[in-house]
Nucleic acid binder design. Sequence first.
DNA 1: TTGTAGGCGTTATCAC
DNA 2: GTGATAACGCCTACAA
Lengths: 342, 342
Amino acid sequence: MAKSTKTPTINDVARAAGVSKKTVSRVINRSALIKKDTREKIEAVIADLGYVPNPQARALALRRNFLLGLLHDNPNAQTVLNFQEGVLDAIKATEFALVVRPVDRHSPHMLEDIRHFLEQQRLYGVLILPPISENDDLAALCREMGCGYVRMGSAMLDDEEHVVASNDREVVENAVDYLVGSGHRRIGIIKGPDGFRSAFERAEGFMAAMKKHGLSIPPEAIGQGTYRFDSGLTAAGRLLDRPGRPTAIFCSNDEMAAGALHAARQRGIEVPGDLSIIGFDDSPIAAHIWPPMTTVGWPIREMGKAAALKLVAPADEAAQDSRFPARLVKRLSVAPPSSGRS
Amino acid sequence: MAKSTKTPTINDVARAAGVSKKTVSRVINRSALIKKDTREKIEAVIADLGYVPNPQARALALRRNFLLGLLHDNPNAQTVLNFQEGVLDAIKATEFALVVRPVDRHSPHMLEDIRHFLEQQRLYGVLILPPISENDDLAALCREMGCGYVRMGSAMLDDEEHVVASNDREVVENAVDYLVGSGHRRIGIIKGPDGFRSAFERAEGFMAAMKKHGLSIPPEAIGQGTYRFDSGLTAAGRLLDRPGRPTAIFCSNDEMAAGALHAARQRGIEVPGDLSIIGFDDSPIAAHIWPPMTTVGWPIREMGKAAALKLVAPADEAAQDSRFPARLVKRLSVAPPSSGRS
DNA sequence: TTGTAGGCGTTATCAC
DNA sequence: GTGATAACGCCTACAA
């Protein structure tokens, strides 16, 4: 319990243990070249003194630091937070810490801003959330700057080691199968915004499934939104105001699905009686509106953990996983089409 | 453009400018003791080389680092993210970075975990979100470890320099005034969980306002929940199943308000026709359910910014703000009580 | 298996 | 005003 006034350094430990700094350093870094006795003695001293290595000093000496960055420009707070939790699961027992950096994908300086951020903080690696994870220039920037990176996305955007991806396309096919199995034939879609890979993947899955079932998709059954609530309201309104309106709508995310639900309610269309709706994300809102919404959930926390492991422990078994299956979460917004209409 | 293979250091700048490291250091740190010519010459070289000071090295030399921590155990993802954005607003142009740390307030090791985190990362300061911001032991721990801290809360939990607070009590009074002004007399409340200062403040504001208006609060008009959706559903159900049910309910947060809305719908009670509801938080769900919910919004992003400034720029004018007024956001879930009932 | 010398990039001290 | 020199806490070489 010496030197309790200041946080102890490696020197204090060395002195107290009667060895050299380097020997202490070897213990810290789990070097094999240490006699068991020596190690145990030093570990005891470390515990006694409450010594914790200074990560800044280590960073300086090792010329690499222990900071992971999280880059996001997010439409969905819960997703970001779940991902953060997953990352923390992975680094909790390590000396790594997670630095967050919201970015504005609409800013013309986005790449410059990120470059400056990476230069300044000299991060060990960054985790990139959609939609900016889909930006190949950003990935190129990371490579150029020697900064590790892992992209989260709806498809394999990059090499295995740089991606954690869900199977949006496939799971949307399942969702359509489910609607068809419930008796629906006139199924509409509200697509996400152009330029989002997730929007593309989900729409492709939808189209493929409809084709598989021999169902046509008239243009008026296709809407498009921005992933925001209002856009879902508007787009669904258009689908529902047309004659021969769909008996079911797949919405490319939950916010738009909530908007579609409102659009139906405004028109006196019952959900799920007259209209079935499926969303995507399994965000909190899906469970908290009425009726509770059938949607697609993905294991975001696990993806966050795997992504972080790819960076900090690439040898770890869990770091090998790159594909994370989303799955349909069945709640109450889907029912067979009402007999009079289908 | 020399030495393009590696990131330039202060030595490269000094050499290129024909001065000593220390002089460059003075420029970086905006020392006044520098001739204008010298400064400008060095600044030009810095820009030319693209030199960025290494924060780890500075941290080592200065014996303090440039990391802010965000401690949260959050019931509300949007709040955390908004706060993060505010913090980033404050530190964007600085060398500070924000490290996030979700904590589990139910863990018996919470304080130990946080202590270890603070020891390991040696943070410049931490920002603490409710509900753990209300933990005085945690604040004491920060003081003990010499770690700056700012607590966000529903009331002045600490000295000015350590708090950004909203005026929950007062704004809930306003909410009740609004209900009374709309003609309501039988007003119920769903309180938040015991042990949450926010729950206490909001309930106090409610009681005070009711008293001010000379309205009684029968025990059966008082419910309590956990701030979760389900608890709101249950608690509201109990209030609504009693004879002489309230014509309006104030819910201590939006999730419970959404639950109350469901409870009403399940019973065929129209909102706002037969029942008015007010929530708290102005979370996304409040705007995205039907009817859009009247709620209390607080300037979380501004609070995040002010909190960060208290740590990194205590002299800044904006860092002086400690109180942040919440305000009633009027939407469609409040109407006069139906004529037959009030 | 352990220790010594030197360096990582920056700042503080104290001369000039 | 400016510049040597010695820290800051840790690690890599290399030597013993």
